[in-house]
Nucleic acid binder design. Structure first.
Lengths: 127, 127
DNA sequence: CTGTATCCCCAACGATACTG
DNA sequence: CAGTATCGTTGGGGATACAG
């Protein structure tokens, strides 16, 4: 539950209203969102595939992030008919797809300035 | 022999990219960092100017963010000699400057999917 | 298989007062 | 002008158990 009157919350609203940059940033900030977008884009369109790829993520968090990304119109859930139990396929919207090149640009930027603690994703989780 | 098109190979590629993505994302995540980089780039090279532009930020937080960005080699502090009291000019490094086009891309992406009440900051005006 | 419900932790955010 | 010290608040991330 959020306190809408806290200065923290007010600041958040101010920033969101101030600049498109912030609304964009809000989409890809957080520990997992950008990776989820990237992962879906690269073919992991199922909950279990995402969980496998982002091996350190908990189901709770993955579910939460997916819901947020859906709300932000980055992805859509597509029920897979006649599967038991029910299956859901995740697909990026055009808005989500257009985000990918920017993430790639960020990747390339990161590659130009490598950090020492740069290790594969599964171990990339900081406690 | 590797199949470059196998999902395995794609995954491998993805994992490597994700890693770089994370280090990059770490730099611009946070509520203020991207905005600060942008603001310095657009000419607000003094503490007081930044504080003025990001009117809702507290000195404590601004100072903290600037220090982090300095540690991440995004900017450098340049003392202004023979000023009383002492003045500090902030300047982006090449690493920081190369980040700007990506932030602009994010900005433009945000503009394509406008939200209500989204007012650009002066620093966020892209040519 | 794809989620929710609960509860907890802590790092980031913030207000205020103070300093060279 | 450009910070630091101190301390309170917040909410995202997480562990675990449970559910349709």
């Amino acid at each position: 539950m959020k306190k809408e009157t806290s200065s923290n919350s007010l600041n958040e609203q101010f920033l969101f209203q101030s600049c498109e940059l912030n609304s964009a940033l809000k989409v890809i900030s957080g520990r997992w969102k950008a990776q989820i977008v990237y992962s879906i884009w690269s073919g992991n369109d199922r909950f279990s595939l995402l969980k496998q790829e982002l091996s350190a993520i908990s189901e709770q968090v993955l579910s939460r992030q997916l819901k947020e990304l859906e709300t932000q119109a980055i992805l859509v859930k597509i029920p897979i008919p006649e599967t038991v139990p029910a299956g859901i396929s995740y697909r990026l919207t055009s808005k989500g797809i257009e985000l990918v090149p920017i993430l790639q640009a960020l990747c390339n930027w990161g590659k130009q300035y490598p950090e020492e603690n740069c290790i594969p994703l599964s171990a990339c989780v900081t406690g």
